[in-house]
């Protein structure tokens, strides 16, 4: 499995750090840093989702809902009650994690298709609530006037927001990789492999599953808050089932068993949907379907799995 070394993380961090400066000098891609903000926001979700799905083996199609709950919590607390955005973000994350614990308790007893459908149903119900409870959420028209973020009186413009988002993504990445490489992460992988054996070895299986579920939901919520404060307006369609499945595409494309894959997948799919698939307009769904199918059939380990695939091929060759 994955053993992270410090250098790749450092190098990628530097690339991300200098990317806006480089992009500013190349007219064709000078708007890429804006897109990268969204990529960073999605990466925060997919890292958690990768821990949940790739490592612990628990499928969720409902994380769009947690993303939405975070976004709406921030929006509602700040614009309707005038609370501090950072406090709202924190409260939203805690609230979402609590909801995840309540939902996850019974849901995570289910396996495979049942769990997929239960999380999907949860996602759709939350989406319907976003649309119907117009008194809070503004209904299908959405909400406007969500304040931006500022640190010590400095308002975060797009450029600074880029560093905020990717800074958080880096912390989340490190925290999650640490988990994977420790006894807690081993317990999660054990659950993926054999729940019975994990239990017999003293792993509190239901407890671990719920903690991971709540953690990944909390990250999705955090990402939702970041999205809300960056966009300054919200619309329920951002949080529909399609987005939940887009998250699935991100982690499958990147490689479901690799945390790196979650980041790669988030970046690529974000660029696909904001930039490269513009040509296809609304046919993008067809393209996503094809990508997803191609990966499952030809590249089940995703892009991050390619090095290992090549290595294995060389090992097998002589």
């Amino acid at each position: 499995m994955l053993r992270y070394r410090k250098y790749p993380v450092l190098i990628v961090s530097l690339i991300i750090a200098f990317f806006p400066w480089v992009a500013a000098h190349v007219p064709a891609i000078d708007h890429y840093p804006d897109i990268m903000i969204f990529a960073g926001i999605y990466a925060i979700i997919t890292i958690g989702l990768s821990l949940l799905m790739g490592y612990t083996g628990q499928i969720s199609l409902g994380h769009a809902a947690f993303y939405g709950i975070g976004a709406y919590a921030s929006a509602i607390f700040t614009s309707r009650y005038g609370w501090n955005p950072w406090l709202s973000m924190l409260l939203g994350t805690v609230l979402t994690s609590l909801i995840a614990i309540v939902v996850g308790g019974p849901a995570l007893k289910l396996k495979g298709h049942y769990l997929a459908m239960a999380t999907l149903a949860f996602g759709i119900i939350v989406f319907i609530i976003f649309n119907e409870e117009a008194g809070f959420t503004g209904g299908p028209d959405g909400m406007t006037g969500i304040p931006g973020l500022s640190i010590f009186g400095f308002k975060l413009n797009a450029e600074r927001y880029y560093y905020l988002v990717w800074g958080i993504a880096l912390l989340v990445f490190l925290f999650t990789t640490n988990i994977i490489q420790s006894s807690a992460g081993r317990a999660l992988r054990a659950i993926h492999s054999s729940e019975a054996a994990a239990m017999a070895m003293g792993v509190n299986v239901p407890g671990c599953k719920i903690v991971v579920f709540a953690y990944s939901a909390g990250l999705a919520s955090l990402a939702g808050s970041l999205y809300a404060h960056y966009m300054n307006f919200l619309n329920p369609s951002t949080f529909d089932i399609f987005f939940g499945i887009k998250l699935l595409i991100m982690i499958s494309l990147g490689g479901i068993h690799y945390i790196w894959g979650a980041v790669i997948g988030a970046v690529i799919v974000t660029f696909l949907s904001y930039e490269w698939l513009h040509y296809f307009e609304e046919l993008e769904i067809l393209v996503y379907g094809l990508i997803l199918l191609m990966i499952t059939v030809f590249l089940p380990q995703g892009l991050a799995g390619i090095p290992e695939m090549i290595k294995n091929r060389f090992k097998a060759a002589p």
Binding site: I179, S182, S183, A184, A187, A190, M201, V203, Y215
Partner: peptide, 14 residues
């Protein structure tokens, strides 16, 4: 993994 029950670390500590 066998040692998890007796000496595993918590999620946060990890």
């Amino acid at each position: 993994l066998g040692f998890h029950g007796r000496m595993g670390s918590s999620f946060t500590a990890s």
